[in-house]
Design a protein around this nucleic acid. Structure first.
Length: 424
RNA sequence: GGAGAAAUGGCAGAGCGGUCGAAUGCGGCAGUCUUGAAAACUGUUGAGGGUAAUACCUCCGGGGGUUCGAAUCCCUCUUUCUCCGCCA
């Protein structure tokens, strides 16, 4: 959520930057917000004045009672009825104005950073880095779902039986590879200074709201109605919400957390070749890195995180590229996002395996995650996160790119974790 | 799941319905002292709104109520603790 006082002071700029995100009605929504904001402040001023008067009278009555002047006290009491009525009306008006402002404000996406390219579609994303060369596979190279069947690594049909489409069952070396990747990612993150946390994978409404999944993306999350809890779509939700309503020490910044969790996404409406095999699942595993950073340093932090993720992909010996997302392709809450895509040799396409974003104060404003600066003032911290990494498409890339007549050869870095060099 | 107790500032812990944003201790910060540190002493130390700055307003787990006036009384929800039951 954007900060109201920023909007108040930078209306033109806000509208201009929202255009980069192709947000419709920016002008009219922002204008309404500002109008309501002015109204709110007026109403509050009136309400405060009434309350001040009522407080004064109440104090006077107290004095009078104490000094035994009961009649005078009673007389004062008669004055209060009208004030109380007024107070009630003003408070209600205030509340409803605040609600209106809030309703509008939650619809407004984050402002893109000035470095964001102006495009509209994924084609307009900017390739900022490429690494590794695409494997020379023969024409009969198999896509990962066929490899998974051939080596009995993943059983998609069994998942359908147990749960439904999009819930694969990993078996044997397939299961072991999952475990290896999770441990590999967690070990690397820990070595890079991230504190490992193991959060709940069900969260309450406040948490869903804090990171912005609620209210707008309610349909994307699995909801446990009986307890009103949500299955997390990413560890970002519980891990970032650790810092909800927290004022951290400036000297503790940046705070670096990582966590492995299963992730659950309803992905309603997806179909076709995009969702074949491991390309898109309802349940998948991911290690997430999250940082709470000083506002002056958050873009350095973002670059650090991007490089950290790139380092993982290099260790996994996967050809990848890094994209800077254009305004039209960025998520609602992000100010700047890098996507990391791995080349999938048999499918002949790029698969997104990580998304690293700086949310600036967009999330922390909702979360009320602040720090006290050197000047003694509390201000919002910046939050960032990135996948490091999401497993399924990594597995897809590993299987497809490394297929040989002898079997699938694992990258060196994974061998100690997996306990085998070849899947055959 | 059943029965009881509780929820106050970073922590601990007071708080007769009016003078309580809240005693006191610890911690934090600043200063004095010291070559430096520790100790001791002095001061300072919650958040939000509002203002040019003051005033002023709100917040003692959440929500509602009683009252001229609520941290204090009532209702309700949530959470925690103790006892019982169940259980990986």
């Amino acid at each position: 959520m954007l900060q109201l006082n920023y909007i108040r002071e930078n209306k033109e700029d806000v509208v201009k930057r929202l255009a980069v995100k192709h947000f419709k009605d920016a002008e009219s929504i922002i204008s309404s917000v500002l109008e309501l904001d002015a109204k709110r402040r007026n109403t509050q001023k009136d309400a405060d004045a009434v309350k001040a008067e009522a407080n004064t009278i109440a104090k006077q009555i107290g004095e009078l009672m104490k000094s035994g002047k009961k009649e005078e006290a009673e007389q004062q009491k008669t004055k209060t009825a009208e004030l109380k009525q007024k107070e009630k009306e003003l408070d209600e008006a205030l509340k409803s104005t605040e609600t209106e402002i809030h309703k509008l404000l939650v619809q407004v996406p984050n402002l893109p950073s000035t470095k964001v390219p102006a495009g509209r579609t994924p084609e307009d994303n900017e390739v900022v880095f490429e690494h590794g060369s695409k494997p020379n596979l023969t024409a009969d190279a198999l896509p990962h779902w066929e490899l998974a069947a051939k080596y009995d690594l993943i059983d998609f049909e069994l998942g359908v039986k147990l749960t439904g489409a999009g819930f694969p069952v990993y078996k044997g070396k397939g299961a072991r590879l999952q475990r290896a990747l999770i441990n590999f990612f967690l070990d690397r993150a820990t070595a890079a200074g991230y504190l490992e946390v193991q959060p709940p994978i069900l969260v309450n409404e406040d948490s869903g709201y804090g990171t912005g999944q609620l209210p707008d993306k309610e349909g994307q999350m699995y909801h446990v109605g009986i307890d009103n809890l949500y299955l997390i779509p990413t560890a970002e939700v519980p891990v970032t919400n650790i810092y909800r309503d927290v004022i951290v020490k400036e000297s503790d910044l940046p705070i670096k957390n990582c966590g492995y969790t299963p992730c659950f996404r309803r992905e309603a409406g997806s179909y076709g070749k995009d969702v074949r095999g491991l390309n898109r699942l309802h349940q998948f595993d991911k290690v997430e890195i999250v940082q709470i950073a000083h506002p002056d340093k958050s873009y350095e932090t973002l670059e650090d995180m991007r490089e950290y993720v790139a380092g993982l992909l290099k260790e996994l010996e996967l050809p990848f590229r890094t994209l800077k997302l254009c305004g039209g392709d960025m998520s609602f809450a992000s100010a700047l996002t890098y996507d990391m895509e791995v080349w999938s040799g048999a499918q002949q396409r790029w698969l997104e395996v990580s998304s690293v974003s700086n949310f600036e104060s967009f999330q922390t404003n909702r979360l009320k995650c602040r720090f006290k600066g050197a000047d003694g003032k509390t201000q919002l911290a910046h939050s960032l996160n990135g996948s490091a990494l999401a497993l399924p498409r990594i597995v897809a890339g590993l299987l497809e790119n490394n297929q040989t007549p002898e079997g699938i050869k694992l990258p060196k870095a994974l061998v100690p974790y997996a306990g085998f060099e070849y899947i055959n």
